[in-house]
Nucleic acid binder design. Structure first.
Lengths: 242, 242
DNA sequence: ACTCCCTGTTATCGGTGTTATCGCCGGAAC
DNA sequence: GTTCCGGCGATAACACCGATAACAGGGAGT
């Protein structure tokens, strides 16, 4: 057993491997993350990875934990004041951080979400755990209208699906309000007191009208296109209520 | 060029390969679906797969289309009466079929959902298309309170996330009501309480829309004014009736 | 000094997606 | 009828990949 330089050297090379792997994953895609490429990028031999992480799964688990930890650290230092707000605001904050993280690390998120079997990754389990505590606070405050477990699963499913849907869309065509819309949808079905959904008649009329714009007579194609664009912008505007 | 037996033989061996691959995928897991294993199971040589499908991605695309087609065929023959119900019931029916399909084909679903890049598979695109038509019917009936595109994405994200959340849970611990709860959550955020326009003709919708143009958010006054002017012109155009 | 245990290094195994190459056969064209 | 050619079956091969065995060296602990 080494005494003084042990942890230093071990953790140093370990962190180097994780950093190299995460950089490779972010810049070259998930297909480029191979044991040989990571070993070469980190300046170590291939079997070292197996000595330190046991498995390639262990490697990507370590990468996920590292990237996620640095991300939430950067986020929490900026806005750590939100730690002791009301439970609903905390939940919304966590939701937004989750979606931002997914959009900021597409390959890693796809890698974690695409795990068919073998259980969730440690990083995913950790995320679920912090979500569980937030939902528990909601339940303790008497704000939940449904089972705590169901609320947890609904938020998780909605968040995961939202990130995947956004990632599957080209960045220019993404709906910036989709995340908040999904959160409001789940929240209003979860919470006991409905947060006063705005009067939807104006939006409903606009949406219905959008479907008949192509059939409007007496307009040029350019006018119809412009009208459709304006309608879309108005309906997806963050102030989408009166 | 072969004339008579061409399509017969080609499609026969093609279907055999697809059937073998789908059986292998369902019974042995996605890791067992390898070109050599599929070729041996189908009684053909490995390069035949590349001659018929071009790529392994092409193979799994064909498998997805085949499995999905047989599934929806089996479902639609049993309950094809639901084809011409009200739009909301149709949407709910499609939602349930989607979730049932995902739970009935876990490996295939994980394979399709786990695609990070390269765009969605043809089968996924087809599913999105049928969902789009259903959402469009909702919008045309004046039942949507949000943008049609946003409604589409919300339903898609919620459905995908729900299936993935259920698949990640051991079958004994799954919440049987999660699917319906998620659907109700999204639906109540999507739907307008009552049809916005009782008369679905183009002119009626346009007239109703003209009354709410001043309340549209996210637009400039000039855009609102131009829209009002175009509406007036369209409604007074000689072709203004259908 | 001796013995471990860890590390670095090389070589290797089994497997995967993919492609090249070589006969071969059967319809097409003259 | 003969020749040609395009696709097909089959084998082998290529370039990787994850994972591991085997062995040399060197510092730590006794």
């Amino acid at each position: 057993m080494v005494a003084a330089q042990d942890t230093s050297s071990r953790d140093e090379v370990r962190l180097g491997i994780v950093a190299a792997a995460s950089r490779l994953l972010r810049e070259e895609g998930s297909n480029a993350v191979t044991t040989r490429a990571v070993a070469q990028a980190a300046g170590v031999q291939a079997p070292t990875i197996y000595r330190l992480f046991g498995d390639k799964n262990g490697l990507i688990d370590a990468v996920a934990e590292h990237v996620m930890a640095t991300y939430v650290a950067a986020k929490s230092t900026v806005v750590h004041a939100a730690a002791e707000g009301d439970p609903v605001a905390d939940l919304r904050f966590g939701w937004r951080v989750h979606i931002e993280f997914g959009l900021a690390n597409p390959e890693l998120y796809a890698l974690l979400a695409g795990r068919g079997a073998g259980g969730p990754s440690p990083a995913t389990a950790a995320g679920m755990e912090v979500l569980r505590t937030r939902v528990r606070r909601l339940a303790a405050a008497g704000l939940l209208a449904v089972d705590e477990q169901r609320a947890l699963m609904m938020i998780h499913a909605a968040g995961n699906g939202t990130v995947l849907a956004l990632l599957a869309t080209p960045p220019q065509k993404r709906d910036p309000g989709l995340g908040d819309a999904m959160f409001d949808a789940v929240l209003s079905s979860i919470l006991a007191s409905a947060p006063a959904t705005p009067d939807p008649t104006v939006n409903a009329v606009a949406v219905t009208f959008a479907t008949v714009v192509p059939d409007l007579p007496g307009l040029t194609d350019a006018e119809r296109a412009l009208m459709t664009e304006w309608l879309h912008r108005s309906l997806t505007s963050p102030h989408g209520n009166a």
